[in-house]
């Protein structure tokens, strides 16, 4: 009996450990190994830091990094927009539950599907520009998809459009869990709508906002592949104007068959993601204490 129960826990976690080792453990070890090798096919000779030298001296790599960083500008927009909508929903106007269902819809639609739809909507002769010209905003009728200067901003709009839906729902859930007596007493003391928002509501939402910011940063640095793959015609186009780090890795592995190069970039992205784990844990713990996530 004793013998059994000492070994039993390991039997329970064995499949878990095996699965995690296969899908995460093995690849992490190998990306570091590959990143120091000239891999052709399945293996190759050690070449020291040459993969890293090559990657770091390549303008396309830095352009990809810059694109990821530029996309981070979406995060403040997402926070402000989600907060505004959540706070208005919180007033529980007639039909607010229906509004909530509709406003979460963008998050239900798969990214590749919505990217295809948006790509058609934002074509130079598409409906978006038609409407803009019709209401006299001709100067805004840009070549949203086809121009190298604009395409990444279009991707960003799409990210804001979709990821804000999550923010709205998260923020609204937190608002509905607030102690409303504070808001009521602020109202009785004559605080305006804006004052109540600024001094009563937002301070109590600090934790959930932090949580949303960290999650969004992780998403934008590491999970925007489907957006750029679909909008950029599978190549991060036009030209290289929407290439991001994920697509750089994909191209190095699949299109140019250079696993060593792809591994060097993967290794660097992995190290960056490790840095993000610390704030993620901190905000998750605090959010759990407030039971928001």
């Amino acid at each position: 009996m004793n013998q059994g129960s000492r070994i039993a826990p390991y039997a329970y976690v064995l499949p878990l450990v095996a699965l995690l080792l296969f899908v995460f453990g093995y690849p992490v070890v190998r990306i570091f190994e590959f990143s120091f090798k000239m891999v052709r096919g399945i293996d190759g000779p050690w070449i020291g830091f040459r993969n890293y030298d090559l990657v770091l001296s390549q303008p396309l790599f830095w352009e990809s990094v810059r694109h990821n960083l530029q996309l981070l500008l979406a995060v403040p927009c997402m926070v402000v927009w989600s907060l505004l909508i959540a706070v208005v929903l919180f007033d529980r106007l007639r039909g607010w539950k229906l509004y909530r269902v509709v406003l979460f819809l963008p998050y239900i639609l798969a990214v590749p599907i919505i990217a295809v739809v948006m790509k058609k909507m934002f074509q130079f002769n598409g409906p978006v520009n038609e409407v803009l010209r019709w209401i006299g905003l001709d100067f805004l009728a840009l070549d949203w998809i086809g121009s190298t200067d604009v395409a990444l901003w279009t991707v960003m709009l799409l990210i804001i459009w979709r990821e804000s839906a999550l923010g709205i729902i998260l923020f609204l859930a937190r608002l509905l869990a607030l102690d409303e007596s504070l808001i009521e007493s602020a109202k009785l003391e004559g605080a305006s709508w804006w004052q109540r928002l600024r001094y009563v509501i937002v301070p109590q939402m600090k934790v959930v906002i932090e949580f949303y910011v960290v999650v969004s940063v992780i998403t934008i640095l590491s999970s925007v592949f489907s957006y750029v793959y679909m909008i950029g015609g599978g190549r991060g186009g036009p030209g290289t104007s929407t290439t991001v780090v994920e697509l750089y890795i994909f191209n190095a592995l699949i299109r140019t068959s250079l696993p060593g190069i792809a591994s060097a970039v993967s290794a660097m992205l992995f190290l960056v993601s490790l840095l993000l784990i610390v704030p993620l844990f901190a905000v998750r713990r605090r959010a759990n204490e407030e039971e928001v996530a």
């Binding site: 450990v17 899908v23 690849p27 590959f34 890795i249 994909f250 592995l253």
Partner: peptide
């Protein structure tokens, strides 16, 4: 259950949520 490495397993597993899937593809593809 009580076993050695329990806390470690849980922290490592939870941390993996922040690791981008794209990082894993090269070795798995090979």
């Amino acid at each position: 259950m009580q076993f050695a490495g329990r806390g470690l397993l849980f922290s490592v597993s939870t941390s993996l949520m922040a690791v981008p899937p794209v990082v894993m593809i090269v070795p798995l593809f090979v």
